[in-house]
Computed example of a mutant assay.
Amino acid sequence: MRDLSKDHELLSLNTATVRKQWRLDTIIDECARRGIRAIAPWRDQVAAVGLDVIARQLRDTGIGLSGYCRGGFFPAPDAAGLAAALEDNRRAVDEAKTLDAPCLVLVVGSLPGALQGKPAYTDIARARNEVRDGIAAALEYARAVGMPLAIEPLHPMQAAERACINTLEHALDLCDELDPGRSGMLGVAVDVYHVWWDPKLHQQIRRAGEDRLLAYHVCDWLAPTRDLLNDRGMMGDGVVELKTIRREMEAAGYAGLCEVEIFSEDWWSRPGGDVLDTCIQRHRSVV
């Protein structure tokens, strides 16, 4: 198991962690000042500054990516919506390639319209079929440009509106179906917030192996959790056995970065510099 205590070379910052405090260009500069060598930016944050501007800034600062957020949201109520979702995913692949990301993270979607409180249908089996078909089509394009796709299973509490793939086992079943040769072009993003509870987690991490483990996201699960989306904990403040999970990831062959991703009204209300400094300290001590 790698020793993180001496430095933060293996730390990446998912830029959602300080999205309320700073624009993406400022986040990059603040990371560079602290020796954080990688980030995982979100598409809306990139668009707000400009794709070419961000690509140039990353080159100038020497900061790389641990992933790009996000593709997915494949289900739709009709053929036109399915086609639009696929086209948007192709654009996301192109953006990830421009930024030299190691993978595009997929939050696959579920019942279309549910996020707005008006689901177009309630057949989750249909949504899962549309997700499978959407990933298959996106993968064909991603292969052509050399951009791996990482399916991120989300906690079952978000099964209706954000992702109908809710376990690592389900995500890996799709990987095996759509990429049986384990080409390295389709894998998973393991986010501890979403999978820490799963009794099959360690078994499925071992099943995934090096060629499927494309990204690793860390935060903590607070007890009690006050909000299903925006109450993630800073590492060490909750109940997740972070070192145990990382030990399993690395034993299975994962050698990538540990990406801090915290959606939290609490941490968003604090000065951005304090948040980054705390991320560094906790990364060294508890991740």
Rank of each mutant, 00 (worst) to 15 (best):
H194S: 09
H194K: 08
W197V: 03
W197E: 14
D198P: 04
P199R: 03
P199S: 09
P199G: 10
K200H: 14
H202I: 15
H202N: 14
Q204C: 14
I205W: 02
I205T: 04
R206M: 13
R206H: 13
A208I: 11
A208E: 06
E210A: 15
E210S: 12
D211G: 06
R212W: 10
L213Y: 06
L214C: 08
L214K: 11
L214F: 14
A215C: 15
Y216D: 04
Y216G: 03
Y216N: 11
Y216I: 03
H217Y: 15
H217Q: 15
V218H: 14
C219Y: 00
C219D: 13
D220K: 05
D220V: 05
W221C: 08
L222Y: 03
L222V: 06
P224Y: 09
P224M: 08
P224D: 10
T225S: 14
R226H: 13
R226W: 06
D227C: 04
L228V: 11
L229Q: 07
L229P: 00
L229T: 11
R232Q: 13
R232L: 06
R232V: 05
R232Y: 06
G233Y: 03
G233F: 03
M234R: 01
M234Q: 02
M234I: 01
M235I: 10
G236T: 07
D237T: 11
D237E: 14
D237L: 00
V239P: 02
V240I: 15
L242G: 02
L242S: 08
I245T: 00
I245S: 00
R246F: 09
R247K: 09
E248V: 02
M249Q: 05
A251H: 07
G253I: 05
G253C: 04
G253V: 02
A255C: 10
G256S: 12
L257Y: 10
L257S: 07
V260F: 06
E261M: 00
E261R: 03
E261H: 01
I262S: 01
S264D: 00
S264T: 01
S264M: 02
S264K: 01
E265V: 04
W267K: 03
W267Y: 13
S269E: 03
P271Y: 07
G272K: 04
G272S: 05
G273C: 07
G273L: 07
D274S: 12
